[in-house]
Design a protein around this nucleic acid. Structure first.
Length: 512
RNA sequence: CGGGGUGUAGCUUAGCUUGGUAGAGCGCCUGGUUUGGGACCAGGAGGUCGUAGGUUCAAAUCCUAUCGCCCCGACCA
């Protein structure tokens, strides 16, 4: 039977959105649930989240933060305290209005009218308001500051158009919420956490990201300043992969977080909030996957090494399995960046080729085969997910154990290099309106091919131009890049649309 | 919430125009042959054709309503 040339159909270039869904399914990362917009995260996908959590949590602790947990339900009135905030989130809130069910006249279950809540509860779309209300009680004096807290939680935003991992109605995230004595300190915190995200994305997810500030139009509702990291995925769209907000005194005023200062005056605290979500997993898939499935960066991979026992003859089964488990034990006793190497032994009684392809689709960084011939020679067959699927090396067990960490680092570096090259190839400077429109317009409007990318262009700073570009091309300002990050971006020029003077280039792209 | 499309086994689907009471591939189960590879052979399980009405001797097929899903908008980590 002839096999397709790639494991995933359609391929990326044919239909990227469909490719993405097929990869998520084939890799057993997640599946749609019966609840619209919500996903079931399967073990292979949840393992990624656990590793992301583990590493980020360490980075948060290392920068002085502690974890806590706040309620899922937010009184409706809390949300209303900050005008822009409620405006931004009101349209996508799930609301709890009753606390009991009963049988209705037709016998079906319904909320009991007598159990209606006096004040509806909103399921948190984000927790600024309820955490702010709590901080208000905790803060009396400048001596109570700063408060540096993070929570790992789920939130709900009733999105119109969900997409697994990238935009689901319920998602997992972390949200840091800090309160400070001075503006300088809060701004410094906002920048520090953006730096943590940038480092994490680059070193662990192998995602090169641009850091920068959102334009007023793209800012978090209620924030003074929104910083972000922007990644490019393989249809050249941008994904906002993490955000860090300087909230000024807006939420402190709304929640009454005030303290007596060193000079005995009443002051409002300066607050920040910052978060990343399970969206990172979607970004990772879209950035690194190929036409055979997902490719997991080793630093976050659910398993680093999958051992595939090859059992051509029944009489060798016991010996092969024993050797597989022995190698697994030795690998688990080996450390990779401080943690034990994560190993799976796939001893299922499934055709070897089928099994091999399953792990290719799932993106395990290393596949290690052990069969009778390897037992005789004392070797294993090692295949890397970032190389052709037939390419194998045959080290001895001890040589493999010595080099496995280096190989994993090499895969990690390869993924980062590939993603960086892809992003750089598709990041262009554009200086005329014609070029700008051509760049972001598909040649085949009926079935748009992958086109566009990141455009660095001058902008007159007006919301009108921003809105016009969004309306015409669905292109938005992803960020005003952090100064010094992109050579020449801070040289003055003329707005690509209006020709008016502009102090610097900003980053434009279509986005998820 | 607007505009378009669609709903048949776990998945992909044929049949619908020209009504007669379901067929395939993949997957799954069993047995066998294989085995450094997503193999082959044989057998088997699984569908009241989204739901509710209607027309008819007879509805997956025609009509009406309703719900779900997909795509395109508005919204968005």
């Amino acid at each position: 039977m002839s096999q397709p040339t790639s494991a995933i159909s359609p391929v990326r270039s044919a239909d990227f959105a469909e490719w993405y869904q097929q990869v998520v399914r084939a890799a057993e990362l997640a599946e749609p649930s019966d609840v619209r917009g919500c996903m079931v995260i399967k073990p292979w996908g949840y393992g990624l989240w656990e590793n992301i959590q583990h590493t980020l949590d360490g980075m948060f602790k290392a920068t002085g933060h502690k974890n806590a947990y706040f309620p899922l339900f937010i009184p409706l009135s809390y949300l209303a305290k900050e005008a822009e905030h409620v405006e931004g989130f009101a349209k996508e809130c799930a609301v709890v209005t009753h606390h009991r069910l009963e049988a209705g006249p037709d016998g079906s279950l319904r909320p009991a009218p007598s159990s209606q809540l006096t004040e509806p509860l909103v399921i948190r779309p984000t927790s600024e308001t309820i955490i702010g209300a709590t901080y208000a009680k905790w803060v009396q004096s400048y001596r109570d500051l700063p408060i540096l807290i993070n929570q790992w939680a789920n939130v709900v935003r009733w999105e119109m158009r969900p997409r697994v991992f990238l935009r689901t109605a319920e998602f997992l995230w972390q949200e840091g919420h800090t309160a400070h004595e001075t503006q300088e300190e809060a701004v410094e915190e906002t920048n520090r956490m953006l730096g943590v995200y940038e480092t994490f994305a680059r070193e662990h997810l192998a995602l090169p990201v641009y850091t920068g500030e959102k334009s007023a139009g793209e800012r978090f509702p209620g924030a003074v300043q929104t910083l972000c990291i922007e990644a490019m995925v393989q249809d050249r769209k941008a994904v906002q992969a993490g955000t860090s907000h300087f909230l000024g005194q807006n939420f402190a005023k709304a929640s009454d977080i005030k303290f007596v200062s060193r000079t005995n005056t009443q002051e409002f605290a300066w607050t920040t909030s910052w978060g990343v979500s399970t969206r990172l997993i979607g970004t990772l898939i879209m950035a690194h996957g190929d036409d055979d499935g997902v490719i997991l960066p080793p630093r976050v991979a659910t398993a680093h090494v999958v051992i595939l026992p090859v059992v051509p003859k029944e009489e060798t089964r016991a010996a092969v399995l024993e050797a597989a488990h022995a190698l697994a034990a030795k690998l688990r006793a080996t450390r990779y960046h401080g943690d034990p190497i994560r190993v799976e032994v796939d001893a299922r009684d499934v055709n070897g080729g089928t099994k091999n392809w399953e792990w290719i689709k799932k993106g395990a960084p290393l596949r290690v085969e052990i069969g009778p011939r390897d037992l005789e020679k004392g070797t294993v067959a090692v295949a890397r997910r970032d190389r052709a699927h037939k390419e194998k090396t045959f080290p001895t067990h001890s040589a493999f154990l010595e080099t496995v960490g280096g190989i994993l680092d090499d895969i990690q570096a390869t993924l980062l290099a590939r993603a960086t090259a892809y992003r750089d190839e598709n990041t262009v400077r554009i200086d005329t309106k014609e070029d700008f429109y051509a760049y972001f317009t598909a040649k085949n409007p009926d079935k748009p091919e992958i086109h566009g990318g990141f455009a660095l262009a001058h902008w007159n700073g007006s919301a009108e131009v921003e809105a016009k570009i969004k309306e015409d091309l669905k292109v938005t300002i992803r960020c005003i890049p952090t100064p010094g990050q992109i050579p020449g971006a801070e040289e003055p020029g003329r707005c690509v649309i209006t020709g008016e003077p502009s102090a610097r280039r900003v980053l434009f792209a279509k986005s998820y």
